[in-house]
Design a protein around this nucleic acid. Sequence first.
DNA 1: GGTATAATAGACTGATGGTCTATTTTAGCC
DNA 2: GGCTAAAATAGACCATCAGTCTATTATACC
Lengths: 246, 246
Amino acid sequence: MIACRKFVMPRVIKHPELRREELLDHAQVLFLTRGYDKASLNDVIASAGISKGAFYHYFASKEALLEALAERFARQALAGVKGILGDPGLDPLARLNALLAQSRQAKIETAPEAWALFETLFRPENLVLFHRINLAASASFSPLLVKIIRQGVEDGTFRTFDPEGVADIVMQFGMATHDVVAKAITGGGDADMEIAIEVLEKRVRLYEIALDRILGLPDGSIRIGEPGYVRAVMTARRRTSAGKAQ
Amino acid sequence: MIACRKFVMPRVIKHPELRREELLDHAQVLFLTRGYDKASLNDVIASAGISKGAFYHYFASKEALLEALAERFARQALAGVKGILGDPGLDPLARLNALLAQSRQAKIETAPEAWALFETLFRPENLVLFHRINLAASASFSPLLVKIIRQGVEDGTFRTFDPEGVADIVMQFGMATHDVVAKAITGGGDADMEIAIEVLEKRVRLYEIALDRILGLPDGSIRIGEPGYVRAVMTARRRTSAGKAQ
DNA sequence: GGTATAATAGACTGATGGTCTATTTTAGCC
DNA sequence: GGCTAAAATAGACCATCAGTCTATTATACC
C-alpha cells in the first residue's frame, strides 16, 4: 500500500483551457437552442464528439458547465465596456450615457450574432441559464455603474441619496428592455412587430425620463437610444433570424 | 368492434377539484421546501398517499402541476386586492397607494405564513416555480395597475405618456423589493440583517420617490411602506422562521 | 524505454418522469 | 339489487438522464 516512490515525478502542464472553451461552444449552441433542461449531456458530448469520461475530466457536472458558460457570457459582456470607465475625458453623465449606449445600441448593431444568442436567453426554456448569466453579469456590471453614479453625485451632476439603488434600477430597466425586444422579435407577424416597435420606443423614452428624474437631471439628459433605433435593431434582427431553420 | 350500444349512458359528474386542491397542497410544500427540480413526482404522490395512476388522472404532467400551482398562487394574491379597484370612494392616488400597501405591508403583516411561502420563492432552487407564478400574477395584476394609472392620467392626478410602462415599473419595483427582503431574511446573521434593513429601507424610499417623479407627483405622494415597517416585517419573519427545522 | 499522470472511452447505475394495462369504485338506470 | 359504463386507482414497466467506475491509450519527462 505504502509505495515508496522513487520520486521521478514528471509534472505535466497542458492546456485544458482550449478543450474547455470548445466544449463551452457546443454547450452554448445546444443550451440556447433547446434550453438547459432539454439539452442532455449526451447531446453535448455527441455534438463535441467526445466521450463521457472526457467530459467529466473537464467539468465536474452539467451544472458546472452551465456555470462556466454563464461566467464566459458575463466576461464577454463586460469586456466591451471596461474602457468607458477608464476614459478620463468623460464627465459622469457622458460616461453613464456611453455605458448605456455601449451595452445596447453599439453592441446590438455591431454584433447581431452576439445579440441573436443573447435574445434567446429570454425564452422561457432558458430561464435557468439566463438567471446564472444575469447573476454573473450584474455582479461585475453593477459595481461599474455604482462607481459612475457615485462620481456624479460627488461632483454634483447627479442628485440621489442611494447610488446603489439607482444602479439597480438601471439594471432593471436594461433587463426589461431586452425582455420586451426579445418577446417582440420572437413573437408574431410583421403587424405585431410594428406595434411592438411603437411600444418599445415609448418604453425606452419612459426609462430615459425616469432615470433623468430619479437622478435629478433635466429631462432628456439620459440617452438609452436614439429615436428610431429600436426599429433599426428589430428589422436587422428579423433579417438575421429569418435565414435560420428550426 | 362496432358494439351497437343500447344507449343507457350514465353521465357522472364528480368533484375532482377537491382532489386537485389537495394535491396542490402537497406539491406546494414539497416544491417550496426542496424546489421544483429536486422534489420528484414520487415524493409528491407519496406525500399525498396516492398512486401514480391517480396522479396522472388529475394532472397531465409534473409541468401541469406546476402550472396549476402557479395559477392558484396568482389567484390568491389577486383576491385580496380586487376590492380596492371597486371602491368608488378612493381617488387614483389613494387607490394606487392602497394597492401598494395591500400587496405588501398588509399582506405581509397579517399573514406571515403566506409570506413565508412567498419568500421561499426567491430561493434559487425555486426559480422555475417563481417565474411561473410571476407570469400568472402579472398577467392579472398589471391590468389593474394600468386601469388605476389611466384613471389618474385622465383626471389629471398623474402625468405620464405611458401608463403601461409605468405599471411595468411598479411591478419591477415590487419584485425587486421582495427579492431584497427575501435575500436579507434567508441571508446571514443578525448583524447582516441590520445592514440589510437599512439598505432596504433606503431602497423603498428610492422607489417611492422614483414613482412620484415618474408620475409627476410631489415627492412623498406614493407610499410603499411606512418608515420602520421593513424592520417590523423582517423581525417578525425572523421569529417565524426561527421555529422551523430543516 | 520506463513511469506516472493526463486524457479518453464506454459499460453501468440509480433515479426520474411518464406510459400502459389491469383492477376497483362509483353512479345512474331498469 | 343487478347491469353497465365510466371514473378512479394501482403499480409494473419503460426510456432517458446525470453521474460513476473501470479499463485503456496518449503524453511528457527521465
